[in-house]
């Protein structure tokens, strides 16, 4: 495939999407490195997985619809997959961290109200 067949407006739209997506992912990574505590850091990667991923995948979807005649199946799949799985992993990690902090008796986290039933 050559990029020459892509019209100018589409090229500008694609570059805007991919750059915004990459920038948001980068900001998420910087947040991960900069935030002072674990519970603050856990918010940072969601930037990359929400609109960071949407930007890059939208750019790819536009490019493949215009440039080649490929159906955007993989972009849809990757997007649904990422948006469904990240909250699950983050929640599990947060619960593990909470549990570890409580076992150590850290004063930064709220104490156990009672034993969670579903463990």
């Amino acid at each position: 495939m050559s990029f020459d067949d892509v019209p100018l407006w589409a090229a500008l739209l694609i570059s805007a999407c991919v750059l915004v997506g990459a920038f948001l992912t980068f900001v998420g990574a910087v947040g991960l490195a900069r935030m002072p505590s674990f519970y603050q850091r856990i918010h940072a990667p969601t930037l990359g997985t929400s609109f960071g991923a949407v930007g890059v995948l939208a750019a790819s979807a536009i490019l493949s619809t215009i440039g080649e005649d490929r159906f955007i199946a993989h972009e849809i799949l990757i997007f649904t997959f990422v948006s469904v799985t990240t909250p699950v992993t983050l929640m599990l990690l947060a619960r593990a961290a909470l549990h570890r902090d409580r076992v150590e008796g850290s004063s930064d986290v709220p104490a156990v109200v009672e034993r969670p039933v579903d463990q």
Binding site: F3, L8, L12
Partner: peptide, 21 residues
Amino acid sequence: MSAMILFWSITIAQVVLGAAM
């Protein structure tokens, strides 16, 4: 023209993503 825009924007995005990594 559009080929150049696409080439550079994708390259920059890759560099930014690499920095994020």
